[in-house]
Amino acid sequence: MTTLIQKMATSEGQPSWATNALRWLSNHIKAIVLPIVGIGIFLIIWSFAASKIDTSLGKFPGPTAVATQVVNLYQEHNTEREKEAAFYQRQEERNAKRVAKDPNYVPKIRAYTGKETFIDQIGTSLITVMSGFAVAAAIAIPLGIAIGLSKNLNTAINPIIQIFKPVSPLAWLPLVTMVVSAVYVSPEPMFAKSFLNSMITVTLCCLWPMVINTSVGVSAINSDWNNVSRVLRLPSLVHVQKIVLPASIPAIFTGMRLSLGIAWMVLIAAEMLAQNPGLGKFVWDEFQNGSSQSLSRIMTAVFVIGFIGFLLDRGMLQLQRIVSWDKASANR
């Protein structure tokens, strides 16, 4: 196809519309075909390797076993939703009969307490990770801007950042659990303690990339832009709004993408260790279950975790493309 494109160039040496169309088609074919080839090779290697590995629970799961579990887990979710709907319907019918006999009766609806399905746990993990990430962003971005604008503040806070940045989430989790248990005491809590434990742990671990990248982006702003702001005598808040934020958006989003990836990894580890609801707990429960399907269900969860992480990163990249003036910074 490359030779064909070269032949269709105009006599003046400028590419024609047909050349541009073929080049566009060639690039898009590569973007589609090459990933498919890579995935196909991976599936072949995985299937071959899985057939050679025997564990205490049977053969290591291959692509077919994982595909089967995807269907099974979806069917289990639908079955559980049908049970939930039937549970509430029975209550409504029972309450209707009670009200018919006694008009003064106040109907009561008990919440359904069935087990969380795999899809429910995906939703729980996503809510938790996005909540922790949002709290971290609300703290880290203003702090990073302040550090980038002030050398003295940077000198004062940098040692703290460097100390806490490498701390593992597994070290934070026991401390967070104890503090939440001691401080968050309410007869009718708005949020479950397990949710707060996971969310705060995620927040603590994804603060640092956002703070560091934001401060670096702010401190690296073109000096001419700062000089223009001084000449115009812009107030501090206007300077941040009109100069600092637009110029540092690429660096801010780089930190946000790094933090979101870290947040997702941290959350799964926290859920496994603390047995908080979510995908991490699903993996640990299946490991403890030790049934003949446990390995394939764990492998399914691994792929789902990875795929969700990929989607979160792509989503953040698309958001960067929307709000950033530098479109080239959001190409990967």
Rank of each mutant, 00 (worst) to 15 (best):
I119H: 13
I119A: 13
I119S: 11
I119N: 10
I119Q: 11
D120L: 14
D120Y: 10
Q121V: 13
Q121T: 12
Q121K: 11
Q121A: 14
Q121P: 06
I122C: 15
I122L: 15
I122M: 12
G123W: 12
G123I: 14
G123D: 09
G123R: 13
G123K: 15
G123T: 11
T124Y: 10
T124H: 09
T124R: 10
T124S: 09
S125I: 10
S125G: 15
S125V: 08
L126Y: 11
L126H: 09
L126K: 07
L126R: 06
I127L: 15
I127C: 15
I127W: 13
I127A: 14
T128M: 12
T128E: 15
T128K: 15
T128D: 12
V129E: 11
M130T: 14
M130P: 08
S131M: 08
G132R: 08
F133T: 06
F133I: 02
F133H: 03
F133G: 03
A134D: 00
A134E: 07
A134C: 08
A134G: 07
V135S: 04
A136L: 01
A136P: 01
A136Y: 00
A137N: 07
A137K: 07
A137Y: 05
A138D: 04
A138Q: 03
A138H: 06
A138I: 12
A138S: 06
A138Y: 03
A138P: 04
I139H: 02
I139Q: 05
A140Q: 02
A140D: 03
A140G: 01
I141M: 06
I141W: 03
I141Q: 06
I141P: 02
I141C: 05
P142Y: 08
P142R: 11
P142E: 09
L143F: 06
G144Y: 00
G144W: 02
G144V: 00
G144K: 01
A146G: 07
A146L: 15
I147C: 01
I147A: 05
I147G: 02
I147Y: 03
G148M: 07
G148I: 07
G148Q: 04
G148R: 10
G148H: 04
L149A: 06
L149M: 11
L149P: 03
S150R: 05
S150H: 04
S150A: 07
